[in-house]
């Protein structure tokens, strides 16, 4: 049977359409409505810079981030799970710092249940990189003798708790690195980890 070139093209297009319809049918709608802000930080770092400069989470309210992340899901070809995780990170990172809400006592002082390495891997590595030199443009270099580690622990802890705008960086680090569940003890542990791993 002779099939014309045009017919072949149409069959090809119809096959692709059929394949995707099949995917739609067999994949549960909105599979799991869960979200993970920690994974979201890494996905945010991996995806947003594919096209544009990283936008500061504090630029928009939680509600506006919802519509904006939906728009970015279409533009960047993100999965629904990627979009939910990134949204969770952005919404966790745009909350006011404890200084701004005049919280006189910082959140709990309990002993950290996480190692400094665990905290760094889950909440810091997306922007600061596994080598501490910064994975995103403008992120300060921990290995630089005049960099952030030239400050004392008290100042570093305050900067991490409240968020910090590094000179020359296009955006600020969010309070607690965007992970509100980290305790002060966790942050002290990660400062110790950063000093011993990257400090000179």
């Amino acid at each position: 049977m002779n099939i014309s070139k045009s017919m072949k093209c149409n069959l090809f297009a119809a096959s692709i359409a059929a394949l995707f319809l099949a995917v739609c049918i067999i994949t549960p709608v909105h599979a799991k409505a869960n979200s993970d802000a920690v994974k979201g930080a890494q996905k945010w770092a991996d995806n947003c810079a594919r096209c544009h400069n990283m936008r500061d989470p504090k630029e928009l309210s939680d509600e506006y981030w919802e519509t904006t992340v939906n728009h970015m899901r279409i533009r960047a070809g993100l999965t629904g799970q990627d979009a939910r995780d990134i949204l969770a990170f952005l919404q966790a990172s745009n909350t006011p710092s404890e200084k701004e809400i005049e919280k006189s006592v910082s959140i709990n002082q309990f002993k950290s249940k996480l190692s400094g390495g665990d905290v760094y891997t889950s909440s810091c590595v997306a922007c600061h990189g596994s080598d501490g030199k910064g994975a995103l443009p403008g992120t300060p270099d921990f290995t630089n003798a005049k960099g952030p580690l030239s400050k004392n622990d008290e100042e570093l802890l305050s900067n991490i708790i409240n968020g910090f705008q590094s000179p020359g960086s296009p955006m600020a680090m969010p309070p607690r690195g965007g992970n509100a569940s980290l305790t002060d003890a966790d942050l002290k542990a990660v400062i110790n980890y950063i000093r011993t791993t990257f400090g000179k």
Binding site: F20, V23, C24, T27, P28, V29, H30, A31, C51, N70, R73, I74, T79, G80, Q81
Partner: peptide
């Protein structure tokens, strides 16, 4: 734009060409 599931969104109307970036 209809989000059909976690992997597929149907876009209907006038859209920017997806050829290239």
């Amino acid at each position: 734009d209809l989000f059909l599931n976690d992997s597929v969104a149907l876009v209907a109307g006038k859209f920017l060409s997806p050829i290239g970036q």
